[in-house]
């Protein structure tokens, strides 16, 4: 599941660098029009509209948050009821064994705790992090450059076509990557 330090997968494709997010957005739309549906972009900050331009589906993480948040709350409440009313019922100040209103704060906290930690865990799983194996395409991609990377799709891969399309899209630099 996690990509740690092992040997990287062979990486082959064309990388185009841009110095402007608007050019990148146009380029992403063009790349997709040309049928490269697996293209990815690299940006120093989230550029809005880029996912739509590349045709990337919406993230499934909110479902994890919802399910885990509710599970946490149910588990928390269940644990409170089990310990206070089932495992060893103790009469505290004449209050009912299932003191529902008094159990709500911890129910809520347990929901937030499980929902929040699992959201972070889901983010790491979704992004395949930690990943120290795959190469960093260019150091400027976390600084001031933007990039589109079209990976070798195997059958029917035409490197020259990819290079031409990216060159025409306003890129400041186009590189063929073989790693």
């Amino acid at each position: 599941m996690f990509n740690l330090f092992g040997t990287p997968k062979p990486l082959h494709g064309v990388l185009a660098l841009y110095d402007n997010p608007d050019t990148l957005l146009n380029a992403a739309a063009q790349v997709r029009e040309h049928g490269f549906t697996k293209a990815d972009a690299y940006t120093p900050y989230p550029v809005h509209g880029l996912s739509e331009a590349l045709g990337i589906r919406k993230s499934w993480i909110p479902y994890v948050t919802l399910v885990m948040g509710l599970s946490g709350a149910i588990l928390g409440l269940g644990f409170e009821i089990w310990t206070s009313a089932v495992d060893w019922p103790i009469n505290v100040g004449g209050k009912p064994f299932v003191s529902l209103p008094a159990f709500i704060p911890i129910t809520f906290e347990c929901g937030v705790l499980l929902g929040g930690t699992m959201t972070l865990a889901a983010l790491l799983v979704a992004c395949g992090l930690p990943n120290f194996r795959d190469p960093i395409l260019d150091r400027s991609l976390t600084d001031d450059r933007f990039a589109i990377f079209i990976a070798d799709s195997g059958r029917g891969w035409n490197e020259n076509r990819a290079v031409q399309i990216l060159q025409a899209s306003g890129a400041v630099d186009v590189r063929v990557i073989r790693a």
Partner: peptide, 26 residues
Amino acid sequence: LGWRGSERHWQHYERAYMMLAGLSTP
């Protein structure tokens, strides 16, 4: 953790960040 700024990752990242903000508020 080896973050590379891929748009496929940013897409998840932004949603996750929003969810954490939504949980932190209450």
